[in-house]
Amino acid sequence: MSNKKQVAVSFLGTVLDSGFGQGRWQKWRPNVAMNQRQDFHLDRMELFYAEKYRELADHVKADIQQVSPHTAVNLVPMELENPWDFSEVYTKLHDWAAGYTFDTEEETYLTHITTGTHVAQICLFLLVESRQIPGVLLQTAPPKNQRRSMEDGNVGSYEIIDLDLARYDVLAERLAAVRDDAVRYLKSGISTQNAAFNRMIAEIEQVALNSPSPILLSGPTGAGKSMLARRIFELKKARHLIKGTFVDVNCATLRGDGAASALFGHKKGAFTGAAEKREGYLKTADGGVLFLD
């Protein structure tokens, strides 16, 4: 059995952990309950909280130390303007992890993903998966009959999830299969041993499915740029990344003053010959893919 200290990283549950009266002991409070277990102990908790919930955080800390005197609780300020904003939450948690001194030789880290918003839980998962927070995930759950069970000493269940375990190889294989299917689709089902071509297609697949950025396809006439562009569009459409249409524009036809009108559209009467309002190619392709050939 490991002699390492166990450290939990967790968000204060502003609803789940709430309760100030004596009745709170008949309520399942995840951050308190995990310290009430006889088969599980923590040496330290890093508990994220917002300043407006400081009273609750202090109360939860006191209750944890009442049921588990050997557990140190560090209250970690985590101010989030919008706890449902993925970018903000991930950035704040990433910065905390980057500045935290992890001692994996002496300590084991359990990242609790039961409390906090779903966005916070996802961000914690990603930080553990990428090893920016070393260790495992901790998931806790309440007993079925909460009040009666708490009175009988049943404080719910818990599960430790190790993202490095081999059982996740099946998931990795399925994700790899999805990626391989996308690559085969971009290659139009044509199998080739050309390493440079295969590498190019793999890079296109990675960019096309993970970034909204424009893609530049270069090559001589007849190389298949138009077909590949349409395949990229169809692949993005199939993955629900876009909802618009595919607009193929032959740039050789864009000449003089008509180029701006063709691309951006014009109102009726905007210039001589503009008898009707016209949507430009960019408007037509909005939400989809504009291929400028």
Results as ranks from 00 to 15, higher is better:
residue 25 W to Y: 14
residue 99 G to H: 10
residue 89 V to Y: 01
residue 166 A to N: 14
residue 180 D to M: 06
residue 89 V to A: 00
residue 275 A to S: 13
residue 284 T to C: 01
residue 191 S to M: 02
residue 84 W to I: 01
residue 201 I to L: 08
residue 81 E to G: 15
residue 159 E to V: 12
residue 148 R to P: 00
residue 202 A to E: 09
residue 260 A to C: 06
residue 237 K to P: 02
residue 145 N to E: 12
residue 266 H to T: 05
residue 144 K to T: 14
residue 223 A to R: 06
residue 250 N to M: 03
residue 167 R to P: 06
residue 183 V to H: 01
residue 23 G to E: 13
residue 261 S to E: 09
residue 235 L to T: 09
residue 252 A to G: 05
residue 229 A to K: 02
residue 221 T to M: 02
residue 31 N to G: 07
residue 288 G to W: 06
residue 155 V to N: 12
residue 273 G to A: 14
residue 230 R to F: 07
residue 85 D to H: 10
residue 236 K to L: 07
residue 88 E to W: 00
residue 112 H to Q: 15
residue 264 F to T: 13
residue 187 K to P: 01
residue 213 S to H: 09
residue 31 N to Q: 15
residue 214 P to D: 06
residue 210 N to F: 00
residue 199 R to M: 06
residue 99 G to Y: 01
residue 160 I to W: 10
residue 146 Q to A: 09
residue 268 K to S: 01
residue 293 D to H: 01
residue 219 G to N: 04
residue 40 F to A: 05
residue 60 V to T: 12
residue 128 V to S: 03
residue 23 G to N: 15
residue 136 V to P: 04
residue 127 L to N: 02
residue 269 G to R: 03
residue 27 K to P: 03
residue 234 E to T: 14
residue 91 T to F: 10
residue 152 D to G: 09
residue 192 T to W: 04
residue 181 D to T: 14
residue 222 G to S: 08
residue 55 E to P: 05
